[in-house]
Design a protein around this nucleic acid. Sequence first.
DNA 1: GACAGTCTTTGATGCGGATCAAGGCCGTCC
DNA 2: GGACGGCCTTGATCCGCATCAAAGACTGTC
Lengths: 236, 236
Amino acid sequence: MTKRCSNCGVRDRSLCGSLSDAELVHLARLGVQRRLVRGESLVRADDPPLVCANLQSGAMKVSSVTAAGDEAIMGLLYPGDFIGRPFAESDHHDVVALTDVELCVFQRADFERALTEHREMEHKLLQRTLAELDRARRWLMLLGRATATARVAGFLDDMQRRLGVNDCQRGTATESVAFDLPLSRGEMADMLGLTIETVSRQMTRLRAAGIIDLPGGRAVVVRDATALAEAADSAT
Amino acid sequence: MTKRCSNCGVRDRSLCGSLSDAELVHLARLGVQRRLVRGESLVRADDPPLVCANLQSGAMKVSSVTAAGDEAIMGLLYPGDFIGRPFAESDHHDVVALTDVELCVFQRADFERALTEHREMEHKLLQRTLAELDRARRWLMLLGRATATARVAGFLDDMQRRLGVNDCQRGTATESVAFDLPLSRGEMADMLGLTIETVSRQMTRLRAAGIIDLPGGRAVVVRDATALAEAADSAT
DNA sequence: GACAGTCTTTGATGCGGATCAAGGCCGTCC
DNA sequence: GGACGGCCTTGATCCGCATCAAAGACTGTC
């Protein structure tokens, strides 16, 4: 195993986790470490699909531009997530860095060959894609019918589950969980199908209800995760 | 190749298409032909995932029940589509027949074994799942931000592309395409995140604009596919 | 530390779609 | 044939979110 892979913080969570140490050596030779600063994009919907990558640190967004000209964010990517559409003719979406990010980037052809050679990796990619499909469908439900409050609450709830696991023991749902939003209000609005103003108002409402706290900047403290989840589910 | 498979109308479009005739004989022995009448369900979200299937004729819906208690439809299935979540712990959604349907049903374990034995089939499933993910994301965009008119127009446009290919030459976009909706107004509303009344009003509006015709029952005639696609894209 | 630019919050108003309510159409059952 | 129930259409009213507008809060620069 190369030094790079052994130091990789997401090895156990990413697709590479299915490879043996020997296989990793081979794959590592194909991969290139790359950093992007906030706002840079790795993939453009119009460009031919040239690369695949594993996200190692930071957060990215998967987005498109609507016919009306505004941006729609259809998903977020966190460390360990896979980027790219092997065997497809097009990527269909832009993938843009929300924070400064570190990536392990592969030429698409190389990665496709690796998938073909390592069944287990392709298998894992399939499972991951199926899971992503389920997530997308859950979002569909949220965006299709939920009120503004439920959308914002659902968004925060989702993020909390993914980012805030470290602060306290799981299970003690009433303990506070703190994290920094990787998105601006505008980006949240794009993602939730709302306007900036509405997002802001709903955040204020959740704070007034004592469910969250907004200490400043993009920091969020979830004070009552149970109430947050309830707000996400309730129609009101 | 068994008689059953050689008669199968969706062989070239379904996952089985990747198999040789000899392999089909083997798989066919595992599969069971099954019919469901309208309203019957093949998969229930709560049940352990027991089966996979290929849809041969008719239409089905993939749905869930929201916390609020009403139904959310997150996708439709047409002949050739695959049903099931191999290697997952749960199906997550209900799959219900919208019309009378014919299915080729496999025990999940059998199908998983078949996938493992036939790389090409698993590969095809991956590509299919990636495509489905893209479709779900396109829906996300529609549901997130589009107006009622755009949702209904988008829905009809999507359906026309999938069902109405036979009536006239592709490319001549202004020719009429006719089909029967497999869904009631209520089901359309569930799918589009609207109410029955709004769906009905929008259909009336599209008819008044000369874009579609509603000869009665669930029949729909698309008179101007270009205008329909425009209505789907425009915010208004 | 002052300034400019961006992001966020808050307020006032209007519109689109939900909700409530009342028929119309069609198949089924007595 | 007539009455009932399901589905669809149409109308009237109300509410939530978008829109328009303006005033803070934060970031970086000089």
